[in-house]
Design a protein around this nucleic acid. Structure first.
Length: 154
DNA sequence: GCCAACGTTGGC
DNA sequence: GCCAACGTTGGC
């Protein structure tokens, strides 16, 4: 059992978009970074818990919780010519990119803002607070998870 | 819209 | 395999 944080720009895909999906499920496609690909393929497993983080918006922060419901499998948008994430170097025979499926568990009544996270003694070391951190998926520790859950109920 | 950070690309 | 140039991310 592991904990993660997935970033998404809400103008692209928000937690409300997820809540409107059938079964409130989506495949987390479009990752085109090797470090993150490796996490999706090898480390992120069914039953893991995920924070849904809104980036490049005002305010950036954690909007809710998801659960992983399908282990890593090839990201088929990579071989879709019409996809924004098309990558000719990935093929069905030799897939380069992976994704998992996630399901919405809950949306927080209020976003836990990046500012709150940066100012919280137990959270200020989270990878998300580091300037220049460009990984769209990062691991979260148990302590960070429980601290954030408590904050979400305030 | 600026710009720092950093991953990727490609020439050598 | 080095490293400069380039592109992208994402907070501000």
């Amino acid at each position: 059992m592991h904990y993660w944080l997935f970033k998404s720009e809400p103008t692209c895909f928000s937690i409300d978009d997820l809540s409107r999906r059938p079964q409130q499920v989506t495949c987390w496609d479009g990752v085109r970074n090797y470090q993150v690909r490796n996490m999706l393929r090898d480390e992120i497993k069914v039953g893991d818990w995920v924070f849904f983080y809104h980036s490049s918006c005002n305010p950036p922060g954690i909007a809710g919780i998801m659960e992983v419901i399908k282990n890593g499998y090839p990201d088929h948008t990579a071989w879709d010519l019409h996809s924004d994430h098309y990558d000719p170097k990935s093929t069905p025979e030799n897939p380069r990119w992976y994704m998992v499926d996630v399901k919405l568990v809950s949306k927080f009544s209020q976003v836990i803002t990046l500012d709150q996270i940066k100012n919280h003694p137990k959270l200020k070391k989270m990878l998300i607070t580091r300037k220049g951190n460009r990984l769209s998926i990062t691991p979260v520790t148990v302590e960070e998870w429980t601290t954030l859950l408590a904050l979400s109920r305030i």
